[in-house]
């Protein structure tokens, strides 16, 4: 390693120029992700952005966080979180992906839909922020603390109590 030295305890010491080079690469990748996001890559927009983010992360973890020169434990630990997070992501996504058509949002919006259904010109009745359209006005704004509208059935007492 031309760029580096070790101190007397076997710890790695990165040189200033080396750290600067890493910083430059990170800034370059930031502009790269900005540039690729401005291009229409279709399905690949998000994967490319994530790939670049993973690249930046790898640089930070390996060189700024010294994992490149760390012990095996540290190397394993630095990816453990990713592995368990994949469990969480994989199974919840399997669920929402296979839930349709029972649920209103369905599974038909992905992938690609994000790019091509953006031509919502403007909702005609909306004139600007802060104002409601004719339909939205007289009705309560969505709020987690509201119960739904009243119905003809008798309301059980105390059902909508809300205390903070």
């Amino acid at each position: 390693m031309g760029h580096a030295a070790s101190d007397e305890h076997g710890l790695h010491v990165s040189s200033v120029e080396f750290n600067l080079r890493i910083l430059a690469s990170l800034i370059f990748l930031t502009f790269l992700t900005y540039a690729t996001a401005s291009m229409d890559l279709g399905y690949f927009d998000t994967p490319v952005a994530l790939l670049i983010a993973f690249g930046k992360t790898t640089l930070v973890i390996l060189y700024f966080m010294h994992v490149r020169w760390g012990s095996d434990y540290v190397k394993i630990l630095s990816v453990t979180g990713f592995v368990f997070l994949i469990f969480l992501f994989a199974f919840t996504l399997v669920d929402v992906g296979s839930r349709a058509p029972e649920q209103p949002w369905g599974k038909y919006t992905w992938p690609g839909a994000a790019h091509r259904t953006t031509m919502i010109p403007s909702v005609p009745v909306v004139t600007g922020h802060g104002e409601h359209d004719a339909h939205g006005d007289e009705h309560h704004a969505p709020s987690s603390t509201h119960s739904p509208g009243h119905h003809e059935d008798k309301e059980a007492p105390g059902s909508h109590a809300q205390g903070h």
Binding site: L88, T92, P142, S144, T145, P148
Partner: peptide, 27 residues
Amino acid sequence: LERGLGIGIFDPKLGGDPILFQHLFWF
């Protein structure tokens, strides 16, 4: 946050998914 600030992460009235809470909870 949802209860205190009303940001509606899991609130079906805002399009949130109450089942997602169960996923995260049981994870």
